[in-house]
C-alpha cells in the first residue's frame, strides 16, 4: 500500500465526478473543474441533495457552481452520488438473494 497525499487524489479527480459531503446534511455531486488549497471548488453539471429532518430529500440541479471549501466535511472521488451507492447495495442484495435461491433449488433437486 503506497502513501498518498490527500490533494494528489483531488488533483487526479479533475474532470471526473466527485461526491462532496458538506455540513448541515447537504451533499453535492458534480464534475470537478478546479480547486484551491482551501478546497474551494468549481463544479459543473451539479446535483445538490438536502436531507430533511422528516426523511425526505430535496434535489436541486445546477449548471455550474463555486463551492466554499469551509462547508466541506469529506469528499468521495470518482463516485456519482448517493443514488449509485444505494443502487449498488440493492443490486448486491438481489445477487445474494439469487445465489440463495439457486442453492435452495439445488438442495431441493438433490433431495
Amino acid at each position: 500500500m503506497d502513501f498518498v497525499l490527500p490533494f494528489e487524489i483531488v488533483d487526479k479527480c479533475l474532470g471526473s465526478r466527485i461526491w462532496i459531503k458538506a455540513q448541515k446534511q447537504r451533499e453535492v455531486v458534480g464534475t470537478l473543474c478546479g480547486f484551491d488549497a482551501d478546497l474551494n471548488m468549481v463544479l459543473s453539471d451539479v446535483i445538490e441533495y438536502q436531507y430533511k429532518i422528516d426523511g425526505s430529500i430535496e434535489k436541486t440541479h445546477l449548471d455550474e457552481i463555486l463551492l466554499n471549501g469551509g462547508q466541506i466535511t469529506f469528499l468521495v472521488p470518482f463516485k456519482n452520488g448517493p443514488d449509485e451507492v444505494l443502487n449498488k447495495q440493492i443490486n448486491q442484495s438481489n445477487i445474494s438473494n439469487d445465489v440463495n435461491l439457486e442453492i435452495e433449488k439445488e438442495k431441493s433437486n438433490s433431495d
Partner: peptide, 24 residues
C-alpha cells in the same frame, strides 16, 4: 439517524476511497 443527525446508527454505507478535510 434521520430524526437526529448527531446520532449515528450501526448501519454502514460503503463509500470506497475518501478524502477528509482537516478543518471539519
Amino acid at each position: 439517524d434521520p430524526s437526529n443527525f448527531f446520532q449515528v446508527t450501526d448501519k454502514l454505507v460503503y463509500l470506497g476511497l475518501v478524502v477528509c478535510k482537516s478543518s471539519s
